[in-house]
Nucleic acid binder design. Structure first.
Lengths: 216, 216
DNA sequence: GATTGAATTCAACAAGCGTAGAATTCAACA
DNA sequence: TGTTGAATTCTACGCTTGTTGAATTCAATC
């Protein structure tokens, strides 16, 4: 499954010079390594080894580790439109509350091949690298904030941002506990159980009264 | 403010040989560095420099970086009893819902001197080090699970663990977004606002029906 | 004041890191 | 077939890391 193997199996194909599949193989390998070990933990040498390639080649294609990270993590921004659409309206069963649907959509995205690695890499690195933290903030703004703005209660921009941040905090906490810290009960739960348990809270963040703390 | 300064200012005190304040100074410095940079990012040399001490001395006292980390992060386990008590019952104003009180207590703990560094160091390192992740899991079990068990609805142990994990995910997500990712709206919000916004969701996790997703 | 044992410093090792540039292979084209 | 330019490899630099052991300082005890 290395890049050299694939080149060998492809043999003399119609590719023009300067375009084997290696460049993409490196990017994919980088996503996996960043997802598993974070920015600092992932080494260029390990990325190259996983792609079956010389370490210097990584540098030749992407210039520096930081640029490679940016290129690898930019992956979710492409299907983010898909995510946003899924979060907002389409593909929602009639009568299903929006909060429940958002939880289900997020879980589906996090378990789909490319997005999973990019998102986990971003989250793993965000706590140690300010650059990664900024990228994650931007990603959240691109996805959560937009979809919240189209469905939120108050029209006040500040309040909408507050609601979106609350939703993001619950979603990130879920991803953190389920996929990275591997809290038993959350890791074992099904998407349906989690949607039923967490969805109503999301709905409250979306349209509920956030100033009523439930005092008797 | 280095250890040597303090020894100099203390002069010939009544301390017995082998007990300057250096050992504790190193531990405190380590907590700060681990909190700011995580396990991998914090270097023994930086820890020693911040304590005004030779790097080898760190090793002389604590043996290895891993043992130093364990010693520094064990700090929260001491006031964890305090935290648990605060989360459970005492110091709660009459009529204030438990969820709101838990949020307020957590915020207070995270902003108090020693706990803040230890907790953030644990959280920052948990995503890159499996050892730190295990320590964080244990810490959560020690604090959240116990206090939830004493107030949760169902007596089923599995369901109680599920409820506790949900609460932990929301709390960790809040800490993540507010203190580390620095989401504007959450970082700027007051403890009261956050308690009012998040508390009711915690109450639902504590005693609500988690199988009703709010379907119309 | 000599002794003792802990605290502290010094210098250095081995390993791993990101990065760089020269050398080489190789596929397409004239 | 020889040329060309990109892909790929080799070797190595400079730096930082955790760790180690020997040497040194220093406060308390006899």
């Amino acid at each position: 499954m290395t890049a050299r193997d694939s080149r060998g199996s492809l043999g003399r194909t119609g590719r023009r010079a300067g375009d084997s599949g290696t460049r993409d193989a490196i990017l994919e390998s980088a996503r996996g390594q960043f997802a598993d070990h974070g920015y600092d933990g992932a080494t260029i040498r390990a990325i190259a080894a996983a792609a079956g390639v010389d370490p210097a080649l990584v540098h030749h294609f992407y210039g520096s580790k930081e640029r490679l990270f940016a290129a690898a993590m930019q992956f979710p921004l492409i299907p983010s439109e898909t995510i946003r659409a899924a979060l907002a309206d389409e593909s929602r069963e009639p009568g299903e509350p929006l909060g429940s649907h958002m939880v289900r959509s997020a879980l589906a995205a996090w378990e789909s091949p490319g997005v999973r690695e990019a998102f986990q890499g971003l989250l793993r690195s965000a706590l140690t690298s300010e650059r990664a933290a900024a990228m994650l903030r931007e990603f959240v703004a691109e996805t959560v904030l937009r979809s919240v703005a189209s469905a939120a209660g108050g029209s006040d921009a500040g309040e909408t941002a507050f609601r979106a941040a609350l939703i993001a905090s619950q979603m990130l906490g879920l991803a953190l506990a389920r996929y990275m810290l591997k809290f038993g009960p959350l890791a074992a739960a099904s998407a349906d159980e989690l949607a039923a348990a967490i969805g109503p809270g999301i709905d409250r963040y979306l349209t509920g009264d956030l100033r009523d703390n439930g005092l008797a």
